[in-house]
Design a protein around this nucleic acid. Structure first.
Lengths: 153, 153
DNA sequence: CTGCCTGCAAACTCTTTGCACGAAT
DNA sequence: ATTCGTGCAAAGAGTTTGCAGGCAG
């Protein structure tokens, strides 16, 4: 699924929700899908402004929930005081993250057992699982040993 | 391990770190260990003030890192804008949390595979795991059906 | 035209910090 | 007597919100 198909989905989503298709919302969408890695709200603002300089911080913050509810962007909370996001064209929810403490990079990995685990463990408490998250904080052995690694800037 | 043994450990920890044993630190410790469930910094402040009314918010925030570094209290970040803590006399790190979206209650469950999983998945990226977290957000079926459940206040 | 959307700046929430006083060793 | 620890209030950081004007439908 390429960016044009995704943008079309986004426009449809806005329509279905009775929301308007504005230049700012599309600029923010495009910015999100042009960023390769995970990004913060502030980084998204910077990129969106390269497309449409009128985009404001407030609109970015107001648009991010729309993007996540459309499932086109996923939100990742890694326990810092700001959230990360990333464009998520097709993958489902069953992913874990490895957080490199040295690079600050986030690696996504498939974790197909997550749904099963959430179900089996929740049912014991009379609970119905909604979402799971599995995150591993780790150190880069290469960076620790040599003072540099391919992910570190 | 009861609260008195834990308090003794805390005093020893303070000593070993060259930190002073103050009334406020002990009051905050005692408050943490009298709270049954998970608690926030603000709740800890309230309880600590019942023991020593001079305790300030700043001191609570300054003492919490000491408590977590001593491993007597564990910090849990559930993605809200404040952190939870709980007195952790003996259990290790290999626990997952179930977060009830209706009760806002946190259930701790043993997840002995966490270390193994973190290791096996990190090694593929040349990373050494430091910590893991596995959290399941869930809804209370009883509360959703009847409008009340034993955990809901 | 109507009312949702926007930018701006102020407000908010939790947490941290600078400072002068106070207490532990 | 030294220093470290403390309370207070202000600062910080990320995010949210009230308001007046602007643009989509």
């Amino acid at each position: 699924m390429n960016i044009d198909e995704c943008r079309e989905r986004f426009r449809n989503f806005l329509n279905d929700q009775g929301l308007r298709i504005t230049n700012q919302r599309i600029a923010i969408f495009d910015a999100a899908f042009r960023i390769e890695n995970h990004f913060t709200a502030e980084e998204l603002l910077d990129h969106a402004r390269e497309i449409d300089s009128s985009v404001s911080r407030a609109t970015v913050y107001r648009t991010l929930p729309i993007l996540t509810e459309s499932s086109l962007v996923r939100e990742i909370d890694v326990g810092k005081d700001f959230k990360f996001y990333f464009a998520n064209p097709e993958k489902g929810n069953q992913q874990a993250q490895i957080l490199c403490e040295d690079c600050d990079k986030i690696f996504e990995i498939d974790a197909p057992f997550l749904d099963w685990y959430g179900n089996s463990v929740s049912s014991k408490f009379g609970l119905k699982p909604v979402s799971q998250r599995l995150q591993i904080s780790a150190q880069c052995t290469e960076y620790r040993a040599t003072g540099a690694c391919k992910n570190h800037s």
